[in-house]
Every structure is written in C-alpha cells, then in structure tokens.
Design a binder for these strands. Structure first.
Length: 347
DNA sequence: TAGGCCATCTGGTCCT
DNA sequence: AGGACCAGATGGCCTA
C-alpha cells in the first residue's frame, strides 16, 4: 500500500516495536502520558462507547432520567466491545499514537531546521513555533525586498520587516542578533510605525508591509521602542536612559548567538567579532543564502544560457528550489552552491 | 497563580 | 483497511 512519504522509513515500526513503555504506562497509574483507563479525562479514554468496533447491540430501549423512553437511536447499531475487539482497538490506537508522535517529531525537526536558518538562531533561547514561522515569513519577505527594490540589509527597514508581527522578546532577540548599532538607529522616524514612507532603504525606498493578518498585541506592529530594549543600546534621544528603564521586563538575551547575518557586517565571509559581540559570546560566521544572494547576480553568471527556472516566489514566473541542507548551510562556499545550482538548473 | 508553550492522546476525515 | 493529517482537549513545565 502506498503511504505518504512522511517521516523516516521504519519510524513507526520501530516505535511500535519499542512500545514496551507505552504498554506499561497504560497499566500504570503513574504514567503521566498515557494514564490508566479511568484516570483519563473523558475525551481521552482509549476505549469509548460508540466505537465502530462495537459488537451488535441488543435491542434495548433506553430510558431517560425522568423515566421517559428515549427516542430510538438511528444509524448503525453499536457493537459491544468484546475482549478481542478491545485488544484490537487498543493495538490500533497505540499504533496510531506512535505514528502521530512520530509525525509531530518530524514536524518539530523541520521547525528546528527552520530555526537554524533564521537570522537569530540560538540553542539556548529557542524561538517558539509560532514565532519561528512568523520570523521565517518576515525573513523571506525582507530578503525579497532586498532583491526586488534594493532595500538595504543594513537599514532599519530591513530589521523592521524581520520583526513585523513578532512579540517583543523575539523582536529584541532578532535585533540583538543582528547586532544593531546605535548609528543604525539614529534616524528621526523612530516613533513611526511600520509602513510609513520614509523608513526605507538607503534610496528612501518606501517599504510597504503586507497585511499579515496577525492578531494584535502582543503580536502587533513593531514598535521602535522594541529595538530600544537592546542590551546596551543608546540612541540619540535616549543617551542617558538605562536600557533597563525602557525594558518591559523582558530579560536581556545572554545566550550564545550564531546569527547567519549581521546588520553591521552582513555579508562578510569572515570577520572578527566586535568587542560587543565577543562580550556576548557572539560568533559571526559566513551567512548562507543571503550571502549568496548578495554576492551573486541572479541568475548567476555561471548559469547564463540555462533555461530560466519556473515559479520561485522571489522571482515571479520562475521555479528555483535548493535542497534545504545546501541552500541554508552557512558553511557551503558560494562557488559550490553555484555549481550545485547549475546542476539543478540543467536537470 | 495565571498565562504561554509544548507534548501527547484522541476521534474524525480524507486519501491511497 | 490503514495511514496521514487535523483540530480539540488536557496536563506538565516554566516564568513573570
């Protein structure tokens, strides 16, 4: 039978084969994940009346609490649960649970992969799932803006695009990972919201923000003050204010940072960490896709003459897909990326 | 203690 | 029939 190609082959089988702990849990009142039947919340009881596995139910007239006869049940007759049926049902449920766990683990693995290619990946301070997805959307959007309109990755607009719709802690994290320097914050539109013309690229290119359809607070538009919560940040008008004073209680980010790009040294293949970065245990490393994008014309000159790919979101009407591990491996030299792209193009 | 986030179980639906 | 997918519900953990 054909099954959808999700997860690693054998995952389910292995899980099912190693379900000893689950079987134990089912009979153990201490199993916190699969509590003993009877300790289940109503909807979690593994064997529910009404299951399709019921044996034929004898014709019994149901009597309500008030003694009145309940209306005769319509639809397929229920079947009684024989012991054999219970066992089959249970086995099926256990298998399905294992599959579901495996599926969710696969989903989480994919989210982890996504986290690793975000501009603020940290092992110690993981982005939540929802924030990861929001940041990913913003990242794609911001990079496409870079490509399409010359929006500078060093502009505040770029950071604002990245932070659009993110929670304040995540905005702080992103801005911190981008190593915003006070100079990049010294502009007079500090209190303007996203989407206001004037906050844009170096050419004054107005940035138009898409409607993300996100709920408002805490996921509303980016407040410039979000960025002022950066540890050690001192803006022109905030010279004397302590970072803690404008903090809303969000703890400063102290974990090691391994961002793929930096606002102050975006696409340098190698650079020494600034004292500030060193202080924060920040290790700059060559960026990946953004480095490629910044250092290669599109399409790459080495691909000249190849048929244009179709349908890539950044390049309407084209299609361009890179294997994830290649496209986002920050350590893949650009010339290797180029050659790999060539082979993809020529396929 | 409330709220956010997460893992898990579950039953329903769709698909092969 | 069985697997994938989905959404709802629940409890645990953590933090402000």
């Amino acid at each position: 039978m054909m099954t959808k190609p999700y997860g690693k082959p054998g995952d389910v089988t292995e899980l099912v084969n190693s379900l000893g702990w689950m079987e134990e849990d089912l009979s153990s009142p201490d199993g916190d994940r699969t509590p003993e039947i009877g300790h289940y919340p109503l909807h979690r009881r593994p064997v529910e009346i009404g299951s399709e596995d019921m044996e034929e139910e004898e014709e019994e007239e149901e009597v309500g609490l008030d003694g009145e006869k309940a209306p005769k049940r319509r639809g397929p007759k229920k079947k009684k649960m024989t012991k054999a049926r219970q066992e089959r049902f249970h086995a099926r449920r256990v298998k399905a649970n294992a599959r579901e766990r495996s599926r969710m683990h696969g989903l989480n693995d994919a989210l982890d992969s996504l986290r690793r290619v975000m501009p603020c990946y940290s092992k110690t301070q993981k982005l939540s799932k929802i924030e990861t997805l929001r940041l990913a959307r913003n990242y794609i959007w911001a990079l496409s803006e870079v490509l399409e309109s010359g929006q500078s990755t060093e502009s505040l607009g770029f950071v604002e695009m990245l932070c659009k719709g993110l929670s304040q802690p995540t905005s702080n994290l992103v801005a911190g990972c981008l190593q915003l320097e006070p100079s990049s914050m010294l502009f007079n539109n500090l209190d303007e919201k996203c989407g206001v013309p004037g906050i844009g690229g170096p050419q004054g290119h107005p940035i138009t923000y898409p409607s993300p359809g996100l709920p408002s607070p805490p996921y509303g538009s980016l407040e410039a003050t979000h960025l002022l919560h950066l540890k050690g940040f001192k803006g022109a008008n905030y010279e004397n204010s302590s970072p803690n004073e404008c903090s809303s209680g969000t703890p400063p980010y102290d974990g090691p940072l391994t961002p793929p790009l930096s606002i102050s040294g975006n696409f340098a293949l190698k650079r020494e960490p600034s004292p500030h970065e060193a202080e924060r245990n920040f290790t700059p490393h060559p960026t990946h896709a953004t480095h490629y994008i910044s250092s290669h014309p599109y399409p790459p000159s080495s691909l000249a003459g190849l048929p244009a790919p179709q349908g890539h979101p950044l390049f309407p009407g084209t299609r361009f897909e890179l294997p994830l591990d290649m496209a986002f491996d920050p350590f893949t030299p650009s010339h290797i990326v180029t050659s790999q792209m060539s082979s993809i193009y020529s396929e």
